[in-house]
Simulated assay, not measured.
Amino acid sequence: MKAAPEDQVVLLDLQRLDNDVTRLTHRITALQKGDRLTELGTAAASLRAQLAAATGQVEDAERDLARLESDTATAQARIERDTTMLQNASNAKDVAGLQSEMESLRRRIGDLETAELEVMEQLDVHRARVGDIEAELARVEADRTTLVGERDAEIARVQADRDAAVQSRASVAAKVPADLLALYDRQRDRYGFGASLLQGGVSTASGVTLTNSDLQTIRQAAPDDVVLCPDSDAILVRTAESGL
């Protein structure tokens, strides 16, 4: 293929812009994945699970306390009833029976009140645990909200840079002859680079110093010959810097 040397030089600008577009695209992808956001999302999910479990413990303790209080109230009501009956009883057997039941009820109330204190202590612990988890979850979610805002702003900035690079790329590509552009795009799609500057005998795409044999072959090519780099398969652009 033949192409004017000045058209081949334009490929270097095209390659630079393609590199920018690729780099910015990767940056956007990395920002969208957001490793730190993933960590915070995982932490928030774990905390929500812990909060659900801790809230369930609070609710269980509250139900236990309500049951104990109800049982205590029932026992107290029976004592009050037996007290009234005892005041009106005249039969010794009835009196003894009421007194025995009241004593049993008082012991029952004592046991219930002890159990209530234990449950209330547990309830305080569970409620404190819920408060701690809620505070930590609020902190994590606040951090995540802040990070999302910063990420979205950074994505918007990088996207604007990428859009500008794509627009510039289109403008530069319009200056390249169609057949040369097609070859450039094909080589770039296949090998990652479409154009490479030969600088001091080194192909900048591969970073490899060309052999004397390769350099001799390139010296023999006409200035408008399109030469491919033997290492990167990119179009090898020759300039005064090439060391030929």
Rank of each mutant, 00 (worst) to 15 (best):
V21P: 12
I109P: 10
V148P: 00
R106D: 10
A75C: 01
L137K: 11
T145R: 15
A156P: 03
D179T: 12
T211I: 02
A49C: 09
A3S: 03
S203N: 02
I133C: 06
R188S: 07
S171A: 13
A170F: 05
I28H: 03
E141A: 09
M102P: 09
V227E: 01
Q187A: 02
R219M: 09
Q15D: 03
R186I: 11
D163G: 00
V172R: 08
E134Q: 13
R127I: 04
L244I: 01
E241C: 06
V9A: 07
L244D: 07
R23L: 10
A52H: 11
R108D: 09
N19I: 06
A234N: 10
A195H: 08
G194A: 09
G200D: 09
G149V: 03
Q76M: 13
D35N: 10
D35H: 02
A89K: 08
D60M: 11
A3W: 00
V58P: 11
T211E: 05
Q216E: 15
L228V: 00
I28S: 06
M102W: 08
E141M: 11
A178S: 12
A49G: 15
V202P: 02
S196N: 05
L86N: 03
D94H: 10
T74L: 13
E118T: 13
T239Q: 00
S206K: 04
E241R: 08
D18V: 05
T239N: 00
L68F: 14
S171F: 08
Q57V: 07
S213F: 15
S100T: 05
N19H: 03
R219T: 09
Q159M: 05
Q122L: 13
A182G: 06
D179S: 12
D179H: 09
L12K: 02
Q57L: 12
D35T: 08
E113P: 13
A170T: 15
E59P: 12
R144C: 08
L47R: 10
V226C: 02
G110H: 11
R108F: 06
Q15L: 04
A164Y: 10
L198G: 04
G201S: 08
V237K: 00
M102G: 07
G201M: 07
L137A: 07
A30E: 14
V95Y: 05
L31I: 06
Q87W: 12
S100E: 09
L24Y: 08
I79D: 07
L244W: 02
D179E: 15
L51D: 04
I218W: 06
Y184D: 07
E69G: 12
G41M: 03
L11K: 05
Q99N: 12
V10K: 09
D163P: 04
E39Q: 09
T22L: 11
E62T: 04
E80G: 12
G200E: 01
Q167N: 08
L147A: 03
V237M: 00
L14P: 00
A61V: 06
G41Y: 09
L123T: 13
V166F: 05
L112C: 05
R162C: 01
V21I: 13
V10C: 00
